[in-house]
């Protein structure tokens, strides 16, 4: 039996005056999944996240969150948490005070233990009693995540959660999000960083000009867009360029470094031919990730 749906959106539309932000968007996210939301600026990501958090109500379509139909603004069920446009913290309060004030607002008991626990989860125990005023962007992002974790969410909605995070902080946040997903929490996150989405998400929805350009597993996305650009560094650049040009299914780009556009089978064949020709392959990597390539292709198609 499959996981229960945390989000089920059908034909969602939302406009601001003459501007159509969302135009017939479908979205399905099951519990225990991390779902990436990507798209160029103005694609409707923040609007969609706002709808999921209950900040606004859709003009049309049907939205169910955690099994509950959403018919009006600020009607998101209790298990929904997250943030859009920054984590929303009060700089004059310490990290602990921010969380304590939120816990008190929501009428939660057993606060101290829970606050310590979530601060530990996001790696902010050492600065728990420091004012947020002096926090870096990455620390604020982590504290925002901690604030969302305070309500033990079943659906976590995050807007650019990796913004400002250093590699260590990013790894920390990724570990937390994967842990939540393993515990059955549905996570929807938007990001401009394709490496983050690829590292975290099992599914992705690409939005372009308010419409869904793609929605599904990452593997399916790669399959839909099989041709990629690869950078090839070898011991004999001229020989490699000649062999690449002779191989069926490979297009060689102009330029000083060797960049080829091809699918995986032709690429395999080229590597074999290079080795047989006595040319050592020192580096072979996609110029852009498969997700980014798909993103660029799909969003360019839509625009």
């Amino acid at each position: 039996m499959g996981a229960r749906p945390a989000i089920r959106a059908r034909e969602i539309t939302k406009s601001f005056g003459d501007i159509v932000a969302l135009d017939g968007v479908d979205l399905d996210v099951a519990e225990g999944r991390i779902h990436g939301l990507v798209g160029p600026n103005g694609a409707g990501k923040t609007t969609l996240l706002g709808l999921l958090l209950g900040l606004a109500v859709a003009d049309g379509g049907r939205l169910e969150i955690l099994g509950r139909p959403i018919g009006r603004a600020l009607d998101a069920p209790d298990g929904v948490a997250g943030f859009v446009d920054g984590p929303g913290l009060y700089p004059s309060l310490t990290a602990r005070q921010n969380l304590a004030a939120l816990a008190d607002l929501r009428g939660r008991d057993n606060r101290t233990a829970q606050i310590d626990e979530v601060l530990g989860e996001v790696g902010l125990t050492d600065v728990a009693d420091d004012r947020v005023h002096g926090f870096s962007l990455g620390m604020r992002q982590r504290l925002g995540l901690a604030a969302a974790l305070m309500i033990r969410p079943r659906l976590l909605v995050l807007d650019e959660p990796s913004n400002g995070l250093d590699p260590s902080g990013k790894r920390h946040v990724h570990r937390v999000l994967k842990g939540l997903a393993a515990d059955g929490v549905a996570v929807v996150l938007s990001s401009h960083r394709m490496d983050d989405v690829e590292a975290l998400c099992s599914e992705v929805t690409i939005l372009a000009t308010g419409r869904v350009a793609f929605s599904g597993p990452l593997s399916k996305l790669a399959a839909e867009n099989p041709e990629l650009d690869y950078r090839l560094v070898t011991s004999d650049p001229d020989g490699a360029r000649r062999l690449a040009a002779e191989t069926t299914g490979i297009t060689v780009a102009d330029g000083s470094e060797l960049v080829i556009r091809t699918r995986i089978p032709a690429l395999d064949e080229l590597v074999v031919r290079l080795v047989r020709g006595g040319i050592a392959v020192r580096e072979l990597a996609p110029v852009v990730s498969p997700l980014e390539a798909a993103f660029l292709t799909l969003t360019e198609d839509h625009s």
Binding site: L74, A81, G82, P87, G88, L89, L102, L105, A147
Partner: peptide, 13 residues
């Protein structure tokens, strides 16, 4: 502070 959305999500009214 850019905290309206955060506050609305928390208070809901």
């Amino acid at each position: 502070l850019g905290t309206w959305r955060h506050l609305l999500v928390a208070v809901r009214s």
